[in-house]
Computed example of a mutant assay.
Amino acid sequence: MTHPFYFSAQLTALLLLSFNLVALSTAVAATQWQTISPNIQFLEQQRALRFYDSNQVLIEGDKCALMFDASGDFAAVEATVKQLKSTLKTPLCYLVASHFHDDHLLGMAILQHHFPDAQLIVHQQLATEFSMLQQTYSNKLDSYEKSIELSLQRLAQQPEAQQQHWQDKLNLAKQRLLRWRQYQLQPPQTYVVDSLTIDLGNYPVTVNAHLAHTNGDLTLGAENHRILVGADVVDWLPYPGHGNFNNWLQTLTQLHSDQRIKIILPGHGSVLKRNDLQQPLNFLHAIQQHVKNYPEQDLVQLQQSFDQQFAKDYQVDEVARKAYPLFLEAGLKRVKQSR
């Protein structure tokens, strides 16, 4: 039986492909740092990888800093580490992993290596299953090693003038792999059952636990609920393959009606406003209702008969045209299996 920690095979393939392509490059994909408030930096993933790698959020008070989530691109995490070490005015005291998916959690191994005193905070459910995740980290490095081996085999097929260029890239990739093999994903020191308030130094934040996008999600509220760090719970195009639909819809409905919220920082994509939550609400509700209305249809039929307006809303570029059908299929399958 497939453990819930794993994505569908198709989505996993896309995630691994994007990871390997970036990791093999000498140039790390640029993450855009955006100042949300004097205390909050939003590290938005480049648009071409917005469905396959996560955003991060850096919050800094007078005494401590907190990093919410870690990229699944380990080379990009190392670039973030370099910037953190040159710009942080306070110690990095806390690392918060919003949920178990690779692109939010596994990069924590790199952050933990460079900031060993930082406490890792996770949902209670994730804490109980955390021992499995070191193997997930190792598996990802194994896939990276295989991509290096495949590239080495293909090197001789490259024009002679380009072989040295690609050999240099592969040498760098092998150096990175050896370095990352030495790291460990350290277990969390703190877990959240309901909510946890942390004072970063004249700057309190509240970490809240949910069962929504997965069986163990964390969000974070700051500045008297004005700013919501929502991770994948609030994504414009949500991945519903592991979601608890009833709880997720309830959570989104509550957030959508909370007029204190002005700014939402999602796990994927650009900054949102509170009213933007109507889109994922509509999408998730439509998936749930569609399966209920047509219980006799298989997955292919359900996809074909699904409201085409969502395809028009979501498939705005080539990346979205690839991601949307996979996300829709995952949601339909999830609801069918839950019935």
Rank of each mutant, 00 (worst) to 15 (best):
residue 205 V to F: 04
residue 184 Q to P: 03
residue 211 L to P: 14
residue 210 H to F: 06
residue 250 Q to C: 04
residue 193 V to A: 05
residue 182 Q to L: 09
residue 233 V to M: 07
residue 181 R to K: 08
residue 223 E to I: 05
residue 226 R to N: 13
residue 201 G to V: 04
residue 232 D to C: 09
residue 252 L to F: 04
residue 239 Y to F: 10
residue 260 R to W: 05
residue 210 H to T: 11
residue 241 G to M: 10
residue 228 L to Y: 13
residue 211 L to W: 02
residue 233 V to R: 12
residue 198 I to S: 03
residue 242 H to P: 02
residue 205 V to E: 02
residue 191 Y to D: 03
residue 187 P to H: 08
residue 209 A to G: 05
residue 199 D to P: 06
residue 197 T to M: 12
residue 242 H to S: 07
residue 204 P to G: 06
residue 209 A to P: 06
residue 266 P to N: 06
residue 186 Q to W: 06
residue 201 G to R: 10
residue 224 N to K: 15
residue 258 D to M: 14
residue 263 I to S: 09
residue 256 H to Y: 00
residue 248 W to Q: 11
residue 235 D to H: 11
residue 256 H to N: 14
residue 259 Q to F: 05
residue 207 V to K: 08
residue 249 L to F: 00
residue 252 L to N: 07
residue 267 G to T: 05
residue 266 P to L: 04
residue 266 P to V: 11
residue 210 H to D: 14
residue 247 N to H: 13
residue 226 R to I: 01
residue 265 L to D: 01
residue 206 T to Q: 10
residue 188 P to S: 11
residue 258 D to Y: 07
residue 193 V to T: 14
residue 233 V to C: 03
residue 192 V to R: 06
residue 214 T to E: 08
residue 249 L to Q: 13
residue 245 F to S: 04
residue 182 Q to M: 03
residue 227 I to L: 10
residue 251 T to Q: 10
residue 231 A to F: 11
residue 191 Y to L: 01
residue 260 R to V: 07
residue 256 H to V: 00
residue 228 L to R: 01
residue 207 V to I: 15
residue 212 A to P: 02
residue 204 P to L: 11
residue 233 V to F: 01
residue 183 Y to H: 04
residue 211 L to C: 00
residue 249 L to P: 14
residue 209 A to E: 00
residue 241 G to C: 05
residue 258 D to A: 14
residue 213 H to N: 15
residue 219 T to I: 11
residue 243 G to P: 00
residue 265 L to K: 12
residue 243 G to W: 00
residue 232 D to S: 15
residue 250 Q to D: 15
residue 252 L to D: 00
residue 195 S to I: 13
residue 261 I to H: 01
